[in-house]
Amino acid sequence: MPTLICGSVAYDTIMVFPDRFKHHILPDKVHMLSVSFLVPEMRREFGGCAGNIAYNLHLLGGEPVIMATVGQDFGPYAERLDALGIRHDCTRVLPTHFTPQCFITNDLDDNQITAFHPGAMSESHDNRFDHVEGLTLALIGPDGREGMLARTRELKAAGIPFVFDPGQGMPLFSGEELLGCVAAADYLAMNDYEAALMTDKTGKTLAELAAMVRALIVTRGADGSTIYVDGREIAIPAARAEAVLDPTGCGDAYRAGLLFGIERGWDWETTGRLASLLGALKIAQRGGQNHRFDRASLAVAYREAFGCELPAW
C-alpha cells in the first residue's frame, strides 16, 4: 500500500559545537545578538522531513512515495533513493532553484540552532499525486506554505486519510488557517513546543484539538510521548537509546512508526511504542538516514524496551 509523504527533501549540513550555547548567549543581550560558534566537526547528510520519514518507513517494509519539489542539485539524492528502492515519482525538479538546504548546529546538550533555505520547496503547490494508484494514507509535513494548503484540500477531496504535521512550517499560518488544516486532517502530530505554539495561535486546548481528529500525537523527547484519542491520554514511554549522538531526524523516525502502525490498524499503544523505538534507534546514529534495522532486530529491541512482543507483519 503506497503512502504519500509530502514535505521537504533537503541536504543537511550538520555541525557540532563542542560546548553549550547557554555559556555564550547573554540573556540580557538577545536584542543585539551577535555570536559566532567554532564548529570543528561538520558533515553533509541526506535529509528533509519527507526524505527521512520515507527512509524509515521503507526500512519497516512500507511503500513510501515522496512528494517534494527539488532543485538542480538533486542528482545525488535521486541516485540514493533509486538505490534504496524508494519511489520519488511525485518529486518535481526545478532547474532554476536549489534543493532545500538545512544548516544545523548542535551543542553538547543536543540543543539545535538551524537555518533553512527553502529553495525549490516554495513552489511545491504545483505538485501532483493523481497518478499514484492505491493511496490509502498520507502525511503533510513542513513544505512550502501554498503547497501544504493545496495538499490539505486535495487529500481531503480525494478521501485519503492524512496526518497533518506542520512542524517548522507552523509560523507560516494564521490560527484560522491552522484550524482549517486540522479540521481536514485525520491525525495531528507535533512535538511539545509545536503543540504549545499551536494552542497559542489557535486559542484551542490540546483536548479541543484532539476532538477535531482521530488522534493527536505530541512527542516530548526523552519524556516519551502522549497520544490523545477517544477522550483518553495514552502515555508512551521513551525507549532507551544505546547512545545519544544526534537528534536530527528523530521526530521523522517517530512519524514513520506512526504511519506504519496506522496502516496496519494496530492499537495506539503498540503504534506509539514502535514510533518511540524508531526515534531511539535513530538518535544513536549521526544523520537522519544512517541507522539500520530489520524485522528480526526490531522485534528484539521492542521486546527489550517494552517487555512485550511486536506484532508480526
Rank of each mutant, 00 (worst) to 15 (best):
5 I>H: 00
6 C>K: 02
9 V>N: 10
13 T>K: 01
18 P>S: 00
19 D>Q: 05
23 H>Q: 08
28 D>H: 14
28 D>N: 12
29 K>Q: 14
31 H>E: 14
34 S>R: 15
35 V>L: 05
38 L>M: 12
38 L>N: 13
40 P>K: 09
50 A>G: 09
54 A>R: 00
58 H>M: 08
61 G>F: 11
62 G>Y: 03
64 P>W: 01
68 A>F: 08
70 V>C: 15
72 Q>I: 13
72 Q>F: 13
76 P>T: 06
76 P>Q: 12
79 E>L: 14
84 L>F: 10
87 R>H: 11
88 H>A: 12
94 L>V: 13
94 L>F: 14
95 P>K: 03
100 P>R: 02
104 I>T: 13
105 T>D: 07
114 T>G: 02
117 H>Y: 15
119 G>Q: 11
121 M>G: 07
121 M>A: 12
122 S>D: 11
124 S>W: 06
125 H>Q: 13
126 D>F: 02
126 D>R: 14
128 R>C: 09
129 F>P: 01
131 H>S: 10
132 V>W: 08
132 V>H: 04
135 L>M: 02
137 L>W: 06
139 L>W: 04
139 L>Y: 02
141 G>W: 01
144 G>W: 00
145 R>Q: 05
145 R>E: 02
146 E>G: 03
147 G>Y: 07
149 L>P: 05
150 A>P: 07
151 R>F: 11
151 R>D: 03
153 R>V: 03
154 E>T: 06
156 K>N: 05
156 K>Y: 11
158 A>T: 01
160 I>P: 05
162 F>L: 10
165 D>Q: 12
172 L>I: 09
173 F>I: 02
181 C>Q: 15
183 A>G: 04
185 A>I: 11
185 A>L: 07
186 D>Y: 00
190 M>W: 03
197 L>W: 08
198 M>E: 04
200 D>T: 15
201 K>D: 04
205 T>C: 09
206 L>V: 09
207 A>C: 06
208 E>Y: 06
210 A>H: 08
212 M>T: 09
217 I>H: 04
224 G>T: 06
227 I>Q: 07
229 V>E: 11
230 D>I: 06
233 E>Q: 15
234 I>R: 12
236 I>S: 02
238 A>E: 10
243 A>P: 04
245 L>I: 15
248 T>L: 02
248 T>K: 06
254 Y>N: 03
260 F>T: 03
263 E>A: 13
266 W>R: 09
268 W>D: 12
269 E>I: 11
271 T>K: 10
275 A>S: 15
275 A>R: 00
282 K>S: 03
284 A>L: 05
285 Q>D: 14
290 N>W: 02
295 R>P: 05
295 R>N: 04
296 A>Y: 08
301 A>K: 14
301 A>F: 11
310 L>I: 08
